[in-house]
Amino acid sequence: MALIEIRDIHKNFGGHTVFNGMSLEVEEHQVVCLIGPSGCGKSTLLRCINGLEPIDNGEIRIHGERMTGPGVDVNALRRDVGIVFQSFNLFPHMTVLDNVTLAPIQVLKVPRAEAEARAMELLKRIGLEQKATSYPDRLSGGQQQRVAIVRALVMDPMIMLLDEITSALDPELVSEVLAMVRDLAREGMTMLLATHEMGFAREVASKVCFLYGGKVHEEGPPDQIFGDPREERTRSFLRQIIDAGRL
């Protein structure tokens, strides 16, 4: 049984079809990369898996539990599924430490001292412990994005969803964020990530999915997708990427 099972989901945004029978499976400890043209629904898929966006039809199961439709405790779901967004939405009115400890204290009811100790430990691992009392707007984009990842990690999620976490960053800042994701992959975190970093996808992914036309158009191991794609549409997408110098 796969850890995440997405079965035949459909979704419309006021007449515009984003998913049209999308299916996808993610096994435990897998790192699955979603690639595809802008607007193909990568972000929307991650938001659906996190319950931030309802789907019209089909179902999503996590660890065998149906998590779409009525009667689902989305708050409980979100404790197990961490998500980091394209634009790191840290809370601008809170310090880094408060950003990281808010959810453990309020949702998991961890005592403040314990939550702060754990947060400091994680911040130390990414070398940001001296920024703990700064506000987000005093951090670089790369630092902010790493704090956003820590904020999701401190909840000890079973799954991490990462939505183009490097796309808002300058190239020199990308590597520090990717290094963090690489560490997570090595520790066996199950991850689903939308990305435009094809080189990185090729390196860390267990499976790459090309989304097109509201479906997974083609999926397979990275070497096959990047080296020998079967579908014409995948090929032309990758050709564009190569032309743009991103592979």
Partner: peptide, 8 residues
């Protein structure tokens, strides 16, 4: 979205 995704 950021807050709800953390389970708040």
């Amino acid at each position: 979205a950021g807050a709800r995704s953390l389970g708040l």
